[in-house]
Nucleic acid binder design. Structure first.
Length: 762
DNA sequence: CGACGGGACGC
DNA sequence: CGACGGGACGC
């Protein structure tokens, strides 16, 4: 979305292409805002409950702007008073521009109440910027999406910058979720960065920090409209995604709160310390955890402005994605002892035929010369997939804008396109060499499991940058191994899908589209069953207190054996967690409470990763030990957590009735997940099988997902964390895991989640 | 290992 | 009514 510079100055005619402002924008399609019911919600929140959490945040940006008695400001809770308009700041406006030149452009996206060109107070010269006032933030949002960085006014030296004026967000109660991204390839463009992040949600903006010479400084910021997306991106990319030519994976974390510049406290209480600002749309449904080992009790952010400096991550660092990332990046030759030795490897089919192309790592940066990934090709596929399969279109690499340009879609596959697809798209799909594209997302996790326990080899990073052609290696082996090791229905279906997909690639795009749609359904079906299966397993686990939390090496090796056989189960765990019962399995701060089976809920432990701190200025702020995010306002999660803590005590007696899964060392979700998975692996095979089968037949009603974003968000969280955890288990050699494949896996799975959304949710 | 973009209205 | 001063995180 950013920098989609329409380097077409002089051309004011190229924008009147979005007639769909004012209501029906959903069809248009510049934003693949799938699953979203347009802004049809009533102006104010009826459910007197004060904006229910469960689904309230489902609203796309500009959600409720109900004022917030925040700092100062009139506390009228209803938006009528507070937000009768939404002001945008527009930069890169030619000094020569007049209102007549600007207004029409913005009128296309809403009713412009006012255009204010800014002039220098003294000289009277225009400052190259202006303010646009819309009546609603919906209109404003539309304008931002349509114009920011995408339209260059005649005479302008660059695309206009369109964003909320200072203080508007606060005033309107909207939030942006900005991530700091480090370790970017210095050559990377905004567009590429966007492509990396778009799988996790609509990227609102990308900003790459550059020096005076316009040279990238290797870091930047990415904004998402929803927090879940940001969380998902963090969990999926931080420490995992390695950009071409980089020797270090991306750092992705919530951006520090920008130091407020004096003077920009105009339109509102911009930055007034605690008690201001928008409330967070917090998913909750958490339950208090007895063992809240306050991550970083005292020493967290002692220093000034970097409360969440990575170095301060303290204890929880191990469980954070970050920790895993470290492992991943470990030198290729790092001494990673695959505890299991060779034994179980029988399944592994040996690295012999390990050279499999397609499993490249970086989707968009595989080709050397072409550092600029041509999205269109991929687009072509997505496009051809037909509107019906919207969800099928992997959010990945499908920038909204591209979708709007049918002309970019070649009628047939041309040589170059094909190659593109194979390299990028296929790579993402985890296509096993000769077996064709695998559309099976559930597998990624398997790979990981398999890998961690067997393959001592990790893909040398060097290769990634040197051999664009054949990023061969482990991934496939693992996958295949994993597959052969287990044969659950889910996997079978996955395999089926894969096989089916194989052909499409060699056929026409349209055919492919159909195939995909079918695959999707198949996957969805299997997904559901796996969901249920896991749900059931989860309950089982609760009932079978694991014998030992801390496995010894010997134990672990044994477990590993089983694990090999149970990679399937494990993968299910990973893949089904999100949709199953979010609250039950992922009581993290990011999980949704939504509908949760009571039985399970009771046994769900929970923790709150938020802790309260005080900034140097004396303001309180809150830090999340898992996501690394810091906020000024108190997260609802924490508030709720505290409340629940109390309830917890009261309910404790009842709790005892039911087997509790409280893990001694559990203080963060990741651990919980890890343990769960481990437990699964320890579960007698037959039993599991039975469970699974049983479960599949049960066909229990699906817990509804309150938000599509949560799905991916939660999932990302789970999968990554879980896997990361595995890397730390004695039996698993996390450092052996190929970051590339790992990433691929995660992304693929997430991708799948997205695709499955429709079926799983509503 | 990199931290915020040119410009920022006025009642 | 009062009206732009002061200084500019810190790893």
């Amino acid at each position: 979305m950013p920098s989609r510079s329409s380097e077409s100055p002089m051309n004011h005619h190229n924008h009147h292409r979005n007639p769909n402002y004012r209501s029906g924008f959903s069809g248009g399609g510049y934003h693949y805002h799938n699953q979203h019911r347009p802004f049809n919600s009533p102006p104010n929140n009826p459910p007197g409950g004060g904006g229910g959490y469960g689904s309230g945040h489902q609203m796309p940006l500009s959600g409720q702007k109900r004022g917030f008695p925040s700092s100062g400001r009139g506390g009228s809770p209803d938006n009528t008073d507070n937000s009768t308009f939404a002001k945008l700041f527009v930069g890169s406006v030619p000094r020569t521009a007049r209102e007549e030149d600007i207004r029409p452009l913005f009128e296309e996206h809403g009713n412009v109440i006012e255009v204010a060109l800014i002039k220098d107070k003294r000289t009277g010269q225009q400052q190259g910027c202006c303010f646009i006032k819309y009546a609603t933030c919906e209109e404003a949002d539309r304008a931002i999406r349509a114009l920011h960085n995408q339209y260059t006014l005649p005479g302008g030296m660059g695309p206009i910058q369109v964003r909320y004026a200072d203080g508007e967000r606060e005033r309107l109660g909207t939030v942006e979720h900005k991530l700091f991204v480090g370790s970017l390839n210095k050559q990377a463009t905004e567009k590429e960065v966007e492509e990396i992040f778009s799988p996790y949600g609509r990227v609102e903006d990308v900003y790459i920090m550059r020096d005076e010479l316009k040279q990238s400084r290797g870091c930047g910021f990415v904004k998402f409209s929803h927090r879940d997306m940001a969380v998902s991106a963090i969990n999926s990319l931080n420490g995992i995604y390695l950009m071409r030519g980089c020797d270090q994976p991306l750092t992705v974390r919530f951006a520090d709160p920008k130091r407020p510049r004096v003077g920009e406290a105009r339109g509102g209480p911009a930055f007034g310390g605690p008690g201001f600002g928008p409330r967070s749309q917090a998913p909750l449904g958490v339950r208090p955890a007895p063992n809240f080992g306050e991550p970083m009790s005292g020493h967290v952010p002692p220093n000034a402005w970097h409360p969440m400096s990575p170095r301060n991550l303290g204890p929880s660092s191990q469980s954070s994605p970050r920790g895993f990332g470290g492992n991943l990046v470990a030198r290729p030759g790092a001494p990673t002892m695959p505890s299991t030795t060779g034994a179980p490897l029988g399944l592994l089919g040996g690295p012999a035929n390990g050279s499999l192309p397609g499993l490249s790592v970086l989707p968009s940066s595989t080709s050397q010369q072409n550092f600029n990934p041509s999205v269109p090709q991929v687009q072509a596929v997505g496009q051809k997939i037909s509107p019906l399969q919207k969800p099928l279109q992997s959010p990945q690499h499908l920038p909204p804008s591209h979708q709007l340009h049918p002309q970019q879609i070649p009628p047939t596959y041309s040589q170059p396109q094909t190659s593109q697809i194979s390299v990028q798209q296929l790579g993402q799909l985890q296509i096993p060499q000769s077996s064709g594209p695998s559309f099976s997302q559930p597998l990624p996790s398997q790979q990981l499991f398999g890998l961690s326990s067997q393959l001592p080899i990790s893909q040398p990073q060097g290769q990634q940058s040197t051999s664009s052609a054949a990023p061969q290696q482990t991934p496939l082996n693992l996958q295949q191994q994993a597959v052969s090791a287990t044969t659950t229905q889910q996997q079978l279906s996955a395999l089926t899908v894969r096989q089916q997909l194989l052909q499409p690639l060699q056929q026409s795009p349209s055919h492919l589209a159909q195939m995909l749609s079918q695959q999707t359904q198949t996957l969805q079906a299997s997904f559901q069953s796996s969901q249920q299966a896991f749900s059931h397993l989860q309950q089982q686990l609760h009932l079978m207190q694991p014998p030992s939390q801390n496995m010894t090496q010997q134990q672990s090796s044994q477990a590993t054996k089983q694990q090999l056989q149970w990679t399937g189960a494990a993968s299910q765990v990973a893949t089904s967690i999100p949709a199953t019962s979010p609250a039950a399995l992922a009581p993290s701060t990011t999980s949704a409470a939504s509908t949760v089976p009571v039985s399970v809920q009771a046994a769900v432990p929970s923790t709150c990763n938020w802790t309260e701190h005080t900034s140097p200025e004396g303001y309180k702020y809150y830090y999340n030990s898992v996501t690394g995010e810091s906020r000024w306002e108190k997260p609802e999660e924490l508030t709720l957590f505290e409340q629940q803590q109390q309830q917890k005590q009261q309910n404790q007696q009842q709790q005892q009735q039911k087997p509790s899964v409280q893990q001694p060392q559990t203080q963060t979700q990741p651990h919980m997940q890890v343990l769960s998975a481990q437990q699964v692996s320890q579960t007698p095979q037959g039993q599991l099988q039975t469970q699974l089968r049983h479960q599949q037949q049960l066909q229990v009603q699906q817990p509804s997902l309150s938000s599509p974003y949560q799905v991916s968000g939660v999932f990302g969280h789970q999968s990554v964390q879980e896997l990361a955890g595995y890397g730390q288990l004695p039996a698993a050699a996390g450092s052996v895991i190929d970051p590339a494949s790992f990433q691929q896996g995660v992304r693929s799975v997430q991708d799948w989640m997205w695709k499955s959304k429709p079926a799983a949710g509503t």
